[in-house]
Amino acid sequence: MVESIVKIGKRGQITLPKEIREKEGLKEGSFLEISDIGGVLTLRKIEKKPSALDLFKEVGEALKKEGYTRETILELVKEPRKAS
């Protein structure tokens, strides 16, 4: 396990240590997913930028885990349409 302390720059940027970039094959243009799990931030390498459809699927799965049914999810999707 490689651990490092990094400093957040003026524009919210961080520099990943060279050892980690090399170990994980990260280069300029690589994609990382950042998650906040109860105050613990994690980074995960992903192969490509997720499409909007991928993101919607993830949101749908998260809603289902929270107990939303297909019907309530569809109602949530329709709600913004009613407002416009």
Score class of each variant (00 low, 15 high):
Ile73Ala: 01
Arg70Pro: 03
Arg44Tyr: 13
Arg21Ala: 12
Glu58His: 06
Glu71Met: 04
Thr69Gly: 11
Gly38Trp: 01
Gly60Met: 04
Lys7Trp: 04
Arg81His: 04
Ser84Met: 11
Val6Asn: 05
Tyr68Asp: 14
Lys10Arg: 10
Ala83Asn: 15
Arg44Trp: 11
Thr42Phe: 02
Gly60Phe: 05
Pro50Asn: 08
Ser84Trp: 00
Thr69Lys: 14
Phe31His: 13
Leu16Thr: 03
Gly29Leu: 11
Glu19Tyr: 15
Ile14Asn: 01
Leu43Asn: 04
Thr69Leu: 09
Lys45Phe: 08
Glu19Ile: 14
Glu66Ile: 00
Lys64Leu: 13
Leu16Val: 13
Lys65Phe: 01
Gly12Ile: 10
Gly25Pro: 01
Gly60His: 08
Ala52Tyr: 01
Asp54Cys: 08
Lys78Tyr: 01
Gly25Leu: 03
Ile34Arg: 15
Leu63Ile: 06
Gly25His: 03
Pro80Gly: 00
Arg81Thr: 02
Leu32Gln: 12
Lys78His: 00
Arg21Asn: 06
Arg81Ile: 05
Leu16Ala: 15
Glu47Asp: 09
Glu75Tyr: 02
Ser51Ile: 12
Val77Ile: 10
Ser51Cys: 07
Thr42Tyr: 05
Gly12Ala: 12
Lys23Ile: 11
Lys78Cys: 00
Thr15Ser: 11
Gly60Asn: 07
Leu76Ser: 08
Lys78Asp: 00
Glu33Thr: 08
Val40Thr: 14
Leu16Met: 14
Met1Ala: 11
Ser51Asp: 06
Ile5Thr: 12
Glu71Val: 03
Arg44His: 14
Leu32Phe: 02
Ile34Pro: 00
Lys23Asp: 10
Leu74Asn: 15
Lys7Glu: 11
Gly9Cys: 08
Gly12Leu: 04
Lys10Asp: 07
Ser51Tyr: 13
Gly67Trp: 06
Val59Ile: 15
Glu79Thr: 00
Leu55Cys: 02
Arg21Tyr: 01
Leu26Ile: 04
Val2Arg: 02
Ser35Glu: 12
Leu74Asp: 13
Gly9Lys: 04
Gly60Asp: 05
Pro17Thr: 09
Lys64Thr: 13
Gly38Glu: 15
Leu76Glu: 09
Asp54Val: 10
Lys18Trp: 04
Ala83Thr: 13
Thr42Ser: 09
Ile20Ala: 12
Glu28Ser: 09
Gly12Cys: 03
Thr15Gln: 14
Phe31Thr: 02
Ala62Val: 09
Gln13Cys: 03
Glu66Gly: 02
Thr15Leu: 15
Pro50Val: 10
Phe31Leu: 09
Ser4Cys: 05
Lys57His: 13
Leu43Asp: 04
